[in-house]
Design a protein around this nucleic acid. Structure first.
Lengths: 224, 224
DNA sequence: GAACTCTATCAACACTGTGTTGAGAAGGTC
DNA sequence: GACCTTCTCAACACAGTGTTGATAGAGTTC
């Protein structure tokens, strides 16, 4: 939900202005796809900073100037890929409030988060590229900000609902708590995904995060 | 504590190998200081990516090749600055276990964290530069990893102590919880410092973070 | 005070990467 | 066959990094 996206799955029929190819529809769709595929492949091999426009062009079997016919910059390619990844993640997402009601707090949260992170876990290189892009690219910042915002909104709703039905005690404003918890998840998941210095083991992250969420929201690790 | 650092406060007498100037001691100390000061100033004005070696050289009143006499690269300048910032932050830090014992959990935590973040809050540009550097610079990653690690170690000790004296209930391994909590703080503080998309207000961050810490560690926002 | 040494300085160069220009080829249409 | 439109790339112009080599000056040393 939320979030902009000018990227259908592969061939959008309407106006592809902004990031995509600059002309209109045509057969060179293959080239465009080749560039995107090359980028995805290379990103799982090495960081964005070590991939040049020339690498992408070569990988797609075209010259560098021709690359610029399809994309205005290297960043645009990565943003397109991230757009799609985010769309994939959003697609696999279910109504968290429903999941929680059906499975109870602990199992429900677990299911929701597992679901949410599934798409990201399968393409760490793309996630890293998105993160690397933020310092220099405002569009990347905005895109990720919108993603975070939609999660925060969901979590805020959950906290408010649980409080209203008496399952969770009062505490700091729900939105503030939601922001901090979502930020913790982002940071922890990212660190684990990339195997950073101090980080949680891949098979422990979720358990630990969920425990903290439950204690923070319900005051106990085993609510209801 | 912990953490490497080849930077005294201004003029280290011993071997300055690694980052600093490459020769030995001499009067060109002024130049070196001028470069560092220029970098600190410019970093509060614009992001690292928009500052060139030439900008630093010009700001210090020297030519670009001369810059390379003092520092091997732009990154080295920033790393030196960060080294010092981290040292400043470590200096103002008190034994957290003591602070907690003297002030009680809530007030003690607050005091410790306020103390810890004071140095960072005064130089957001430097913090941002450090963060921007991580994707491309391993030394920056390692440096920050070491800082995180020392905080994690402290927090782990606190959690274990509180559990051992019966003030905190059992839960996930102390170190795992400490990692997640420290990561949350890092992310939340950074987002607030830079005014990111969804982030907590400057005057609310600590309250919210502390509340989550207390609930996560003690099971209640107002422990004994 | 000439020979020597070490710090400090920079013009000129070599290189890597980005993005642009302008001239076409290849195909479809009327 | 004149005429768009898509697509392609050699050649260029730039911005930035890091290196070379020559040299100025200050400080010993004898």
């Amino acid at each position: 939900m939320a979030t902009a996206s000018n990227a259908g799955t592969t061939a959008p029929p309407s106006a592809p202005k902004g990031r995509g190819r600059r002309g209109t529809r045509a057969s060179g769709d293959d080239r465009e796809r080749a560039i995107l595929e090359t980028a995805e492949r290379l990103l799982e091999e090495r960081p964005l900073a070590e991939i040049s426009v020339d690498d992408l062009a070569k990988g797609a079997g075209i010259s560098r100037p021709t690359f610029y016919f399809y994309f205005p910059s290297k960043d645009a390619v990565v943003l397109t890929i991230i757009d799609r990844l985010v769309a994939d993640a959003a697609e696999g997402r279910e109504e968290i409030l429903t999941t929680l009601a059906e499975n109870g707090p602990r199992a429900g949260l677990r299911k929701s988060l597992e679901n949410l992170y599934a798409a990201f876990r399968s393409r760490p290189g793309v996630v890293r590229a998105g993160s690397d892009l933020r310092p220099t690219n405002e569009e990347a910042r905005d895109l990720w900000g919108a993603v975070m915002e939609s999660w925060v909104a969901d979590v805020t709703a959950v906290i408010e609902f649980e409080r209203s039905r008496g399952a969770a005690p009062a505490g700091p404003p729900a939105r503030e708590m939601a922001i901090a918890l979502v930020q913790m998840n982002e940071r922890a998941q990212y660190a684990t995904l990339l195997g950073e210095a101090p980080s949680l083991d891949r098979d422990r992250v979720l358990d630990v995060l969920i425990d903290i969420w439950l204690r923070a929201i319900y005051g106990t690790p085993e609510p209801g």
